[in-house]
């Protein structure tokens, strides 16, 4: 493997993305809204919920799984709501961030290269198919991990600042989120990446790839719905299993993606 070539491809794709307003806009805005705005909004709104609505919340909490109720024991309704929302319900939303960052950059790197007609010159270089593929994967995966890590720090900071008075303790960091950030977020980024590689092999433009690949966010929304309806809750075991499942799916997607990323196949599509 020629790591110099791989690093050059990854660096170049990142540099190009950083100069594209259309790509950078969602990459900056979405993490800020989800990881900065949302916890601040929830922490600010919860104390304003009227007492009659709180009674409804109590009934809702009675339907939660036993293990989760045990986690919330000793907390009043307002405190329970804050913990539920910020630690559990928003966890899948946090995962949207690495997923989206990886998907957007991968769409630009794979389908965008085809759209800008810059792929042929790249295929005429000595870089092997595997080096080209790996360089492009890293160009999307590494920033997704970076944004996920920085995003977690932002989320934890905002949530702790906004809830410390109500809870009297720090919510973050905690073991559940540590596992989420270190184990699941990289796998989720890989999932977005693998999906986008396959989608890009079938479309010709960045926009088409991004729109088709947008469906990858659905499983995460199902996780949110599962928790809100009380069907599921993210404890350490569930998060660990979620990570394992995603890594297996990633391996399959990337193995198949690498098979489609062959010079002879790509050049025939130009």
């Amino acid at each position: 493997m020629n790591w110099r070539a791989i690093a050059a491809i990854a660096r170049k794709d990142l540099r190009a993305v950083s100069r594209s307003k259309g790509v950078m806009f969602p990459l900056v805005l979405v993490p800020l809204v989800i990881l900065g705005g949302l916890p601040a909004l929830i922490a600010s709104v919860t104390p304003l919920i009227p007492p009659e609505a709180m009674a409804g919340m109590e009934r809702f909490m009675e339907k939660l799984p036993q293990a989760l109720r045990a986690e919330l024991s000793g907390l009043d309704v307002e405190q329970s709501l804050l913990v539920l929302a910020l630690v559990y319900f928003l966890a899948p939303m946090y995962l949207v961030v690495p997923l989206m960052v990886a998907s957007v950059i991968a769409a630009d790197s794979f389908a965008g290269e085809m759209e800008r007609k810059t792929l042929e010159a790249l295929l005429h270089t000595p870089a092997t198919d595997a080096e080209l593929f790996l360089g492009k994967l890293l160009s999307a995966w590494i920033p997704a991990l970076g944004v996920a890590a920085v995003g977690f720090l932002l989320y934890g900071f905002v949530a702790d600042i906004c809830t410390f008075r109500a809870l009297g303790r720090l919510l973050f960091p905690n073991p559940l989120w540590a596992l989420l950030v270190a184990w699941v977020a990289p796998a989720v980024a890989g999932f977005g990446l693998g999906t986008m590689v396959l989608v890009s092999a079938r479309v010709r433009t960045f926009q088409e790839a991004y729109q088709l690949g947008g469906a990858v966010v659905l499983p995460l929304l199902l996780l949110v719905a599962g928790q809100v309806t009380g069907l599921l809750y993210l404890d350490l075991t569930v998060v660990a299993l979620l990570g394992i499942s995603l890594w297996v799916v990633d391996a399959a997607l990337l193995w198949y993606g690498a098979r489609t990323f062959r010079r002879g196949v790509l050049i025939s599509r130009l």
Binding site: K12, T118, E120, H124
Partner: peptide, 10 residues
Amino acid sequence: TEIPALDGRL
């Protein structure tokens, strides 16, 4: 190549 195929953002 037939088209210069340069990255216009670099």
